[in-house]
Design a protein around this nucleic acid. Structure first.
Length: 410
RNA sequence: GGAGGCGUGGCAGAGUGGUCUAACGCGCCGCACUCGAAAUGCGGUUGGGGAGAAAUCCCCUCGGAGGUUCGAAUCCUCCCGCCUCCGCCA
């Protein structure tokens, strides 16, 4: 959610900002129209309420009764306008950072660097589906019967690999000063909305629980942000670096095709997520830190990857700037996204009312950032496909040996 | 799941229909006293919003949302959370 004052004072700044994200200026104009209406109603209503307080103190009951009717009428008008204004406001995306590359779509994302060497095979490499099934560590067929397509069972070494990845990421982040959180896999709707995940509508990702306002989280970003919703930090308490462990559930409606095969796009996976609360002046630097941490963690796994900076048209509503790590995936002979880190500035914080206060000063909204450490499903793809051997077995990355308790899968 | 109790400012805690502009205390901030500090004294101290060039004025906010009333922290309804007891359960 953007600052209403910014919209009022500098509508052109907002229009220009959201234009490069592909959002039209009409949103801003419509907002200003409704806001003007809202302000008129509010001023009138305040006046009538002041009168009501006065009449009531004077025990002028007759006049107060009459005035009350007018208040009620105005209140319902105000409520209707406020609701419309809110709906528009929520559709206005966060402004992109000046440093974010301009572009209309994914195609214009910018590759910053490649790190690590792609493996060279003296045989035809298999994809993770073939490897996983042959090794008896992933079972898609049974899962699709029991739970539907887009689900999977992990077995034996597949299970060890899943837990090894999680353990590796948690140890890594713990050593970098993060607090570790085991988070709820379900959360109330208001926190989805607060983080900008809309659980309803055609774009909905979220599974909702019937007869409740709970949904399965699509990322622990939701529950991590929610920890401090409505709170005001002391400035010295920031930054807060949190690492959240959760399962993630996504509907992925309509996402099919060869790029979505196997573990690449699934309804459930495990993720260790970084989430940080900072002061505004520190968030750009913190974003660099999160990206550096992702790189260090993935370099530790010795998986070749490249860093992609997301262009304005592909940023999404919440982010002002975003970087993805894409691992080399020999099975598709292409790169595939494995992490994503965003600076959401005060966009989520304003919605969730997360603030901080320097001694004596008025509280301001904090900035929040997020970044993937490990999403197990895609990490498993990257490891199986890059570490496969001619004999069909898979070497365990050095960094995971102590967690796996073995050096080879198969 | 059942029964009962509770939710008030940074903390603690009074207030059960109008004088609440929320007591007293602690903490915090400022000022005075002091060479400085402590102690003491005085003042300030939730957050949000509207009008105005400004001074300033006004509105909302006692877990949340509605309702009753001229008037609600206080009464009613629903929801959320916490506590106690009972039941059930990994």
């Amino acid at each position: 959610m953007l600052d209403i004052k910014l919209l009022r004072d500098s509508p052109q700044v907002v229009k220009d900002g959201i234009a490069v994200k592909g959002a039209g200026p009409k949103l801003v104009d419509e907002f200003l129209r409704l806001d003007g209406e809202w302000r008129t109603f509010t001023a009138n209503l305040d006046e009538k309420r002041a009168l009501q307080n006065k009449l009531s103190k004077e025990r002028n009951i007759e006049a107060a009764k009459k005035n009350k009717e007018e208040i009620k009428e105005l209140e319902s008008k105000l409520a209707a306008t406020e609701k419309s204004r809110e709906e528009i406001l929520l559709q206005i995306p966060n402004l992109p950072d000046a440093a974010a590359p301009r572009g209309k779509s994914e195609a214009e994302n910018k590759v910053l660097r490649e790190v690590g060497k792609k493996p060279k095979f003296d045989f035809t490499p298999k994809d993770h589906l073939e490897l996983g099934e042959a090794l008896g560590i992933i079972d898609f067929e049974t899962a699709s019967r029991v739970s539907g397509s887009g689900f999977y069972y992990l077995k034996n070494d597949g299970v060890l690999l899943e837990f090894a990845l999680v353990h590796y990421a948690l140890d890594f982040l713990r050593s970098k000063g993060f607090d570790l959180w085991f988070t709820p896999d379900l959360a109330r709707e208001k926190y989805y909305l607060g983080t900008g995940y809309n659980p309803r509508g055609p774009e909905a990702q979220t599974y909702l629980i019937e007869n409740s306002d709970l949904g399965l989280v699509a990322t622990s970003e939701v529950t991590l942000a929610g920890i401090h919703a409505g709170e005001s930090f002391a400035a010295e308490a920031l930054p807060k670096r949190y690492a959240g462990y959760s399962h993630c559930f996504r509907q992925e409606a309509g996402a099919y095709g060869k790029y979505s095969r196997g573990l690449y796009r699934v309804h459930q996976f495990t993720k260790v997520e970084m989430y940080v609360f900072t002061r505004p002046e520190d968030s750009a630097k913190m974003h660099e830190e999160l990206l550096a941490l992702e790189e260090e963690l993935w370099q530790g796994l010795k998986v070749p990857y490249r860093v992609v900076e997301i262009c304005t048209g592909d940023l999404g509503a919440q982010a002002s700037r975003k970087f993805d790590l894409e691992a080399w995936m020999p099975g598709r002979n292409d790169w595939g996204e494995i992490t994503s880190t965003s600076n959401t500035t005060d966009y989520q914080a304003r919605r969730l009312n997360i603030r901080y206060k320097k001694g004596g000063e008025k509280p301001e909204f904090a900035h929040t950032l997020n970044g993937t450490a490990i999403a197990t499903s895609r990490a498993i793809i990257a490891i199986l496909e890059n570490y496969q051997r001619k004999d069909g077995k898979v070497d365990v990355p050095k960094a995971l040996e102590k967690y796996m308790g073995k050096k080879v899968i198969g």
